[in-house]
């Protein structure tokens, strides 16, 4: 028996035999998770979600004008269950993720060196920045028609659009990152004997890492935006396409399932970038 009044399994008495331990231990972990998720602070959050769902149910039931065609929460849940069980759903996930991956990574591979070059060389910046700044204000979604016309395949045009989404953001962030590096750091390095190549590899690159990570994080959010739009307009397969097709087929619960799935996929991608950021910058954690 545990020591706390709830009869919890926080402390196991010695007499429990080893074969019982794994089960008991799992129960202990579950209890810990339960306590972590459901406590006073998160209770408020849960309450508001419950109220939201209840209102949703009510609005449809009472047939509020314009909103009466919304599906019931239960219908959405059912549709979701079906989707999750189907192979097509996960194929859509895969397609969307692949497109994000290709476009995003391409943007980093081209954008980061470009941003660094602009930050380091005034001459290079003078040459390339004006053109860059003319193109940057064009919203990625506005590139869709041109991309479809000029790329040989639909997939390539989608990769390109995702690329555009992340590209301008990463370049501008890297540029800012380099110029934000305090001049005293560069001076200190020079005095200590660093030559230009040392300054680049040991000072500029690590020094702009925080901005690079910011550029990646923001860029990741934008790419999902662009991807969904591109898929809806021109794609074959993918979560955006699926959501759009749900609309054209009049399957409203599936639209909501699509939306939730896209949100989840975006959240997971952002979390991945954030995790990467934390690993890449161990010095940012303060003790």
């Amino acid at each position: 028996m545990g020591e706390n009044g709830k009869g919890g399994l926080d402390t196991l008495p010695e007499s429990v035999s080893s074969q019982h331990r794994p089960v008991a231990k799992m129960g202990y972990l579950q209890l810990k998770l339960f306590k972590r998720v459901f406590n006073l602070r998160t209770a408020r959050g849960f309450l508001s979600v419950l109220i939201f769902l209840a209102l949703w149910q009510l609005v449809v039931y009472v047939k509020v004008p314009y909103l009466q065609y919304l599906p019931y929460p239960r219908q959405v849940a059912a549709s979701g269950m079906t989707a999750v069980a189907s192979w097509q759903y996960w194929a859509d996930w895969g397609l969307s993720l692949e497109r994000i991956f290709v476009g995003f990574i391409a943007a980093q591979i081209i954008g980061i060196p470009l941003g660094l070059a602009m930050g380091i060389s005034k001459v290079f910046k003078g040459f390339s920045f004006p053109l860059f700044e003319i193109l940057r204000p064009i919203p990625p979604i506005a590139w869709i028609p041109l991309a479809i016309l000029f790329w040989p395949t639909r997939e390539l045009s989608i990769y390109f659009l995702v690329f555009i989404g992340a590209f301008f953001i990463i370049v501008i962030n890297v540029l800012q990152g380099v110029s934000n590096i305090s001049v005293s750091l560069k001076w200190a390095a020079s005095s200590l004997g660093a030559k230009p190549k040392d300054i680049f590899w040991r000072i500029l690159l690590p020094g702009s890492l925080p901005s690079i990570i910011t550029g990646m994080t923001v860029g990741m959010g934008v790419t999902w935006n662009v991807l969904i739009a591109a898929e809806m307009i021109a794609g074959q397969g993918g979560l955006g396409r699926a959501t759009w097709e749900a609309y054209t087929n009049g399957n409203i619960p599936l639209i909501v399932v699509g939306m939730v799935s896209i949100g989840l996929a975006g959240y997971l991608s952002s979390t991945l970038v954030r995790w990467f950021g934390e690993k890449a910058m161990p010095w940012n954690r303060e003790v």
């Binding site: 305090s182 005293s184 750091l185 001076w187 200190a188 390095a189 020079s190 005095s191 200590l192 004997g193 040991r202 000072i203 690590p206 020094g207 890492l209 910058m281 010095w283």
Partner: peptide, 18 residues
Amino acid sequence: PGRDRLMVFQETALFPWM
């Protein structure tokens, strides 16, 4: 600049990533 004249700055110039 050179190694024979080294400075400790007003604001910390330690390289934060090292």
